[in-house]
Amino acid sequence: MIGERYLNAAILAIFFVVPAWAYWANEPFTITLMTRAAIFALAAVGLNIALGLGGLVSLGHAVFFGIGGYAMGVLAFHAQTFTPLMEWPFVIEGTKSMPVIWLTAIVLSALAALVIGHLSLRTSGVYFIMITLAFGQMFFFFSISWSAYGGEDGLSIYVRNGFPGLNTLQPIQFYGLCLSILCVVLWFTHRLARSPFGLALNAARQVPQRVETVGLDPTRLKLVAFVISGAITGLAGALFADLNRFVSPTMFSWQMSGEIMVFIIIGGVARLFGPVAGALVFVALEHFLGGLSEYWLVYLGALLLVIVLFGRGGVIGIVSGREKAHG
């Protein structure tokens, strides 16, 4: 067994070493793959706050991923066509600035999470799963019929958005941005889980009534977690759209929600680096198995089955054992 701390460091090292090698060996495609892994990891770290800490099995996180994507798509579309987003009551122009797009993605997905969470948290268990799924489908079909922004065909953005001081068209620079954000969010998540809020949320997942007797509202704790979770996944959506320079309704699809959840299950639910390990394994399989067979998802399914049946803690759990007390 390898200590979880060392395993986490090793996973993080992959995110530094592989792109560094790819940059040196002039393999931009590998950098793009790693960018994809980092962004998927970020989306799943977001979901893991709701799923792992809060016990909220949300099958609708693609909503936030998609909102982030469309925040980027819509703002950049108006910037590249030189048309204002709206003219009344005040003029809002499009933008190609990543910080502005990120902020918009975070705010909009947090707001959506607030509304969806408020309504969904009246239920629990399988009903919660179904109602989040239903919200996901609502957004999916709305985006399909939203012809102003491409409808089913989605929206292409010709040039990647900019970040002050960087040339984001260079894969390694855009990767650096994504990795920095992932690291900051991981640090934030680590602190969150150890904060009184995170501890109370953890307790609320297991014994809601005991949490109530000490004066905390379990529903409110879960709602706050859901909002934070949605905001992070939304930010990942904006980055994902920028990576592909394309947004489409598939970002809202329930398969997307399922994929984000699969990252967490492969890596390890409620483990800090679980989603990161899961996203890395997923992207690696997608690349290597996808090269062998069009039906690579069959193998992914088999892997998922093995992990769920024999290694409940995911990759992190299999390698470093059960979670230990933290001092």
Binding site: R194, L199, N202, A203, Q206, V207, A325, H326, G327
Partner: peptide, 9 residues
């Protein structure tokens, strides 16, 4: 809160 440490409780 069974899964938390004494301090965290």
């Amino acid at each position: 809160f069974a899964s938390l440490t004494v301090y965290e409780n």
